[in-house]
Write a protein that binds this DNA or RNA. Sequence first.
DNA 1: AAATTTTTGATTTACGTACATCAGAAATGG
DNA 2: CCATTTCTGATGTACGTAAATCAAAAATTT
Lengths: 341, 341
Amino acid sequence: MRPTVHDIAAAAGVSLATVDRVLNQRPGVRLVTREKVETAIREIGYIRDVAAANLAKGRVYPLVFIVPTGDNSFMHGLRSEVHHATLRASIERTDIRIVEVPPFDVPALVSALDALLGQDIAGVALVATDAPEVRAAVGRLVSERIPVVTLVSDLTDSARHHYAGIDNIAAGRTAARLLGRFLGGREGEITVLAGSMLVRDHRERLQGFSDVMAEEFPKLRLLPVLEGRDDPELAGSLVSRALAQSRDIIGIYNLGAGNRGLITALKAVRPERELTVVVHELTQHTRAALVDGTIDAVLNQDAGHEVRSAIRVMKATADGQAVIADQERIRLDIFLKDNLP
Amino acid sequence: MRPTVHDIAAAAGVSLATVDRVLNQRPGVRLVTREKVETAIREIGYIRDVAAANLAKGRVYPLVFIVPTGDNSFMHGLRSEVHHATLRASIERTDIRIVEVPPFDVPALVSALDALLGQDIAGVALVATDAPEVRAAVGRLVSERIPVVTLVSDLTDSARHHYAGIDNIAAGRTAARLLGRFLGGREGEITVLAGSMLVRDHRERLQGFSDVMAEEFPKLRLLPVLEGRDDPELAGSLVSRALAQSRDIIGIYNLGAGNRGLITALKAVRPERELTVVVHELTQHTRAALVDGTIDAVLNQDAGHEVRSAIRVMKATADGQAVIADQERIRLDIFLKDNLP
DNA sequence: AAATTTTTGATTTACGTACATCAGAAATGG
DNA sequence: CCATTTCTGATGTACGTAAATCAAAAATTT
């Protein structure tokens, strides 16, 4: 059987109360005694039974998710996954609050973060807009010992405890290689559509994409990036205009949201123009487009995994527990029409 | 607060003991009373606190993993992941036993399964060899109410509760599309290397691969399948011979193990022959080959995820609990040189 | 209606930990 | 050496559930 507090008490030759004081770093234990207990803990390999401890404590984890508003499918899906997590709240002893802020709005995000200061909170997960003000606000939370996890998009040089999202540089590089290899040595122009260069995930995807294109596919020329602000309408009209302006475009990479508009624009020029297209985020729209051949590959991050991972990490961090790092690595999913879930 | 057994007792107007009898399906409760209690459970939305219940029961889950011996990297990795899981045993209340059997050996697998009959076991996970005898042995375990999970390779028409592995038809289809598109309209021969047609995962991958090749890439001709028995030596020599026999081979798909041998064979003909290669399983060898360009894509299943998922499912099944289906879906990872973890 | 069987209630202990209280022991100060 | 402070032990309750025991009530049979 697994050792308990009683075993430590016996091994260290002290009472249960003293063991408890040491374990929960309560005052009133002499240094020598504390060391005696800590040695016993190490020697018999005691591990606290977290389930029993939580039961005794009546522990609940008040968590806050700060997510952007906006009607693109990905953020919609993300909010819905957080909502799903609230349904498991009683089982998981969580108490999840969702705070919505306008997208790409630094002051709004900062005030949402600062509003949490001083509150009794076991963790904060946020989709970060990468700005110094946000970094500072996160720093304030961390210095109050509140676990902070960035979700989907990371925050440069910040004190956040964890990032629950994909490696976006790798994502951009992968998109470039897929596009390059699918185009098999052809020559032409590539147009890139992004949401905003204010968020780190988009910047990183572009960087990775540009790097591989330059290194490995010199015959493909990148056109200036179109910024669609993750808005389907805007994205669609930008792409339509670009396609009308140049007949040499043979590939498109959408590293942001707004695929609905992009797909409409593609279908409008469909039979005449032969285009290889790689986009991000598997939604009902991109899935259908993948199946009917409008799109060639979809890179995806599983919002459900990200949310569940963020919750696990926040809880573990709040308890000072370790996490299975490998289990919390968010993977980049590559979908072709053949491996759709 | 979340409702407890006391709340049900009060709501149903019965004693705690009766609630307990109903919850744990113990005898000695009249039908009408049982229904009264069950109604109360539903109405106030009671959910058993599994942590508290396990604590009270002193529950441990004795689990058995049946994995093939064999020195290919994938099975090595799988065994090591199961071993890792044993290290978390005390935390997860599991007691994991690993049973090794020779690969592709039906009688050995059957006797390993039958040896478990009558033992006190909370679940069995096995890498299935797809044969009627195995199916029958699994049926015997299931009829003794022992949860059975197939791992990596599934068992056709069997009573197993769950399959913790990837969709191998989709994997084969994906491999075909990657190979086809990477070859960009060229004409030539494709050689396929498998382990054994006795395991369902290999058969399914081949089927998916052949289907897509036939439907979408008619210029690529499939050569007869080489069976390398997942043995690096044999795989290497088969491929070397095939390459020597035909100068028209432009693509290779290894849907089994034994990549070490394949990679050696490829390097031997390297500068002259231009080959596009897709293989399964990310190991140190395939990773290096991907980086140096010997291989173009690696399809992978994460053995760690599979093992952890199998454990979660066996525990949940033993307790008659539901699982988050989405969380237990094992995904097909596609690795190019850009998105290696 | 009595005897019997079946069902229900009341109560207790246990799981491993947290936390509080109070008395007593040991260490420290003067 | 005494007074004081600091430490330690002993004990009890709680968390939510499981499981056992025994008594009492209700239903069933004779």
